[in-house]
Amino acid sequence: MNETFVTLSGWLGNDVSVRQAADVPVASFRVASTPRRFQRSTQTWEDGDTQWYSVNAWRALAENCEQSLRRGDPVVVHGKLSAHVWTNKAGLEVTTFEIEAAFVGHDLNRGTSRFQRRKPVVASDGASTEEVPADAA
């Protein structure tokens, strides 16, 4: 099966929410992407229609998104795109787009960010499943 991967830049429409799915953290958030086009005839920039995407990030990426992203942040998301068609209460057919994120980051065209590496915590039995920020260890 072929899968469609996309990269989009936009603005976080809400704070990240995290839930557990089979004991695995899943972060969910919405990204708004509005294309801009230069109109030669008027020598002005015009905004196109804003498109909204639901984004899900799993495991460590979910936790990092929760700690790093806030509503209104400029972001870049890369992942698998899927479309879902459903009928709303008014009886209209609606298509929503969802991205299962592989990579998420701040859009550094719009500002600066500081990276903080996470390092694994090694338990007494040698297992290392939990991670903490590097400066917290």
Rank of each mutant, 00 (worst) to 15 (best):
A102Y: 09
D23E: 14
T87Q: 09
A60S: 15
Q43A: 11
E93Y: 00
L8T: 15
F97G: 03
G48H: 04
E100G: 01
F103P: 04
L108W: 08
A123H: 09
L92R: 15
A21R: 11
T95Y: 13
L81S: 08
M1H: 14
P35D: 06
F38E: 01
V85S: 12
A101S: 13
R30V: 14
N109H: 12
Q43P: 02
R117K: 06
G111D: 03
S124V: 03
E66P: 14
N2P: 14
W86E: 08
V75S: 04
W45H: 08
V18I: 09
D15M: 03
D73N: 00
A90W: 11
W45R: 06
R114I: 07
K119F: 06
R36C: 03
A127P: 00
N64A: 07
V18C: 07
S124Q: 02
S54P: 01
D49V: 12
E46L: 05
S128C: 09
K80Y: 01
N2M: 06
E63Q: 12
T129R: 13
T50W: 03
L8D: 12
P133N: 05
P25T: 02
R70E: 13
F29G: 05
T129M: 01
T129V: 11
F5D: 04
F97K: 07
T87R: 04
L12D: 04
S17D: 15
G91D: 06
A62R: 03
S124M: 00
G10N: 14
I99E: 06
K89L: 14
A127T: 15
D47I: 02
N56M: 06
F97L: 12
R70G: 06
P133E: 10
E98P: 00
A90R: 13
S68A: 15
R117T: 10
A32I: 03
Q116A: 08
E100T: 10
E46S: 11
G91S: 03
D135A: 11
E98C: 02
S9Q: 09
W58I: 02
S41E: 09
W11Y: 14
K89V: 12
N2Q: 07
V121F: 04
D125E: 10
A127V: 03
